[in-house]
Design a binder for these strands. Sequence first.
DNA 1: GAGCACTGC
Length: 902
Amino acid sequence: MDRTYLQIWLKDKGFTYSNAYNKGKTVVFSKVPLPDYRADLDERHGSTQQEIKMSNETERRVENLLAKAKSNSNDSASTSTLTMRQSRSSASSSVTESIIDIDNERLSSELRDMQNSRKLMPGARSMQSFREKLPAFKMREEFLKAVAANQVLVISGETGCGKTTQLPQFILEEEIDNLRGADCSIICTQPRRISAISVAARVASERGEELGDTVGYQIRLESKRSTQTRLMVCTTGILLRRLVQEPDLVGVSHLLVDEIHERGMNEDFLIIILRDLLPRRPDLRLVLMSATINAELFSKYFGEAPIMHIPGFTFPVTELFLEDILEKTRYKINLERDNFQGNSRRKRLASIKSDPISDAFEDVDIYKEYGNYSIATRQSLEAWSATELNLSLVEGTIEYICRHEGEGAILVFLTGWDEISKLLDKIKGNNLLGNSNKFLVLPLHGSMPTVNQCEIFDRPPANMRKIVLATNIAESSITIDDVVYVLDCGKAKETSYDALNKLACLLPSWISKASAHQRRGRAGRVQPGVCYRLYPKVMYDAMLQFQLPEILRTPLQELCLTIKSLQLGAVASFLAKALQPPDPLSVKNAIELLKTVGALDDMEELTSLGRHLCTLPLDPNIGKMLLIGSVFQCLDPALTIAAALAYRNPFVLPIDRKEEADAVKRSFAGDSCSDHIALVKAFEAWKEARRSGRERSFCWENFLSPMTLQMMDDMRNQFFDLLSDIGFVSKTRGLKAYNYYGKDLEMVCAVLCAGLYPNVVQCKRRGKRTGFYTKDVGKVDIHPSSVNAGIHQFPLPYLVYSEKVKTASIYVRDSTNISDYALLLFGGSLNQSKTGEGIEMLGGYLHFSAPKRIIELIQRLRGELDKLLQRKIEEPALDIFSEGKGVVAAAVELLHSQNVYH
DNA sequence: GAGCACTGC
């Protein structure tokens, strides 16, 4: 067996990137300035030259295979055919039109008869009186008049006013009553899947109908609708996909966009498109639904569209700030005990100012400002730190509520896994709260396994108090009805995007007033409640009105690709029309990345690859990984990895058994040094377990989320269908026909490399340790949850990663160890090195050296591979294994020659 | 050497 021993030859060249960092120029970046991790830039940035070692045997084989390929490709000249888009027949004959008119008239009157008869059904009376009590009901006529008179209408209303369920319903009833039922098509968008389903279900039941009749819903991979459906509730993402096919939303009569104040990326993107669409569709009616807090913003955006306000109804919630809490609970914040570093207020004042909101408090003269409060309170305020969460204070407040306040569940908002875990431990050790008969303490975090989902929602047994320790997930995604007390620590982890360093960040920051309001509202769902804010009033006053919109906080490559596919013109000028346009540098980064991936050409136009990527609901890198995976016969693992990366990691993080969970994940990875392979193995094992009917125990034992795995499975099917739509696979041949190399680790890693490039890490040995470096930010760390964490010596010189995030440090979360051949054949384009005889990649960040004839051989192979791939992209039905037999075989040969495992 | 906000096609 041919085995090439790979020697890693390290050579520091002191390479620096002046374009990426301007020394002396400060980084202006969202709310949190970056610490100076670039201090010893030159030292850290030393670029490594990788010497390519190729055995004579391998060289001869690759040489031979390539020679065969040459003769092969000559006799089969490219026969790429231009596919013409079939245009839909635009004009239907007048005869069919009049038949449709008659049909529609009949249908409209049927719909009206049905609507009227349902009003007489048992239960309809009580349902109607319930609806009449909602604040929205009083506005019914006014609302309908405004919809008729204005193309755009902005509705502002607080939770509990009934706007989401009533307004679309009013329109539906009105249209049906006026015999326009057959012609109307109402779409209502929701930002989340669950809310789309529950809104549709609620409206259907209020109308006394089955879901899917006149009222239906559609979310990804799931819908309940019929030809009867006149009101469709869908997620914003579904509507955006529909716009790709139907840019004018032909046939839609009314569009209601809900929760627009949340400023999600999809919603912000949608309203730019809609503002441009309205003049082309004068008959379309648009209703924007927002919380009261920022309705004017949207009205202005749509040329002073009228605003209608609907008062809300929730139970009153008493609000207590830190000073009131200290006064009431007599809790004492003790410097030595509670503040680990013993930061006194004065010491903190002397150090660097942290953030404007904390500063708002640090600047206050406590003895003056809090003159009406007790000395103990003032001393506690003096000792309190705005930068570190004081868990003892949280616990003390919980204890106070349990001792002195009435019944009702307590909901505690914390920032993350760590805080939840620590507080849980603390409570369990507490004498009063440790009494397990009296308290039910439940952690609630997106990646914790939901052992007993019901426990969170159900009322606890009598004389038992439920205490939920949650993240932001409880702010809008999960609603716990019986909450009476909310504890708000005032912070949440928030993503931001540092365009200068091309770096996504996930850091705790102060929430906005809007979030604080939302958290408070969680206490008043069933009865009057109390909200304990564990920060001073002055800090609340200093909080931002709203969170920064998502479009300003995330990388934009996927959005930019969608803009191109919708033919909305130049990306930068289109995005400049947004309510709050993103930083031009972020746009530039996204376009550069799309060019690197090969989705856009130099003129910023979509390439053939780019057009394929538009059809896949994936980040362009992951989409490319999937396409290359199908091309190179690794479809099964590519589907799994794409699904996991696009949705969420199926591995859960149990609060008390995380070491075990870590070990299980590592055992799935084996010696692959790959989180992506661990995912694939876990998914395969799940499928096997499901076949033999032991899914539940398998998931439990292996710390996997059955719901996530199920969703991944569905997404895999969706991706397969989409690949079939664009001709890369044939459904009749099935998945197995595209998976010849599915178990071949080197091939799967090469496919990962093709997709994840330019997300490459250089592993540099430094004595006993390995340092990890990327082009954009220099030194990075392997995330401790990765199977690659703690490995000091990797068999291969590079890692590719799916995500790099700055939290406590800059981490690559999921990574795979790859060879230099994988990079050379499937990475970025190769360039002649400016300094020597070698070749380079990634704008000169990665260098490879070898004897001249080896370099030439590799470049020749790479050239043939690129040509073959290009033909395949232009002509997806092409069989590259017969067409480019020699080239593929040569590539496989080379990848296998670095097999260090067998 | 020590960590994992949340949505969506």
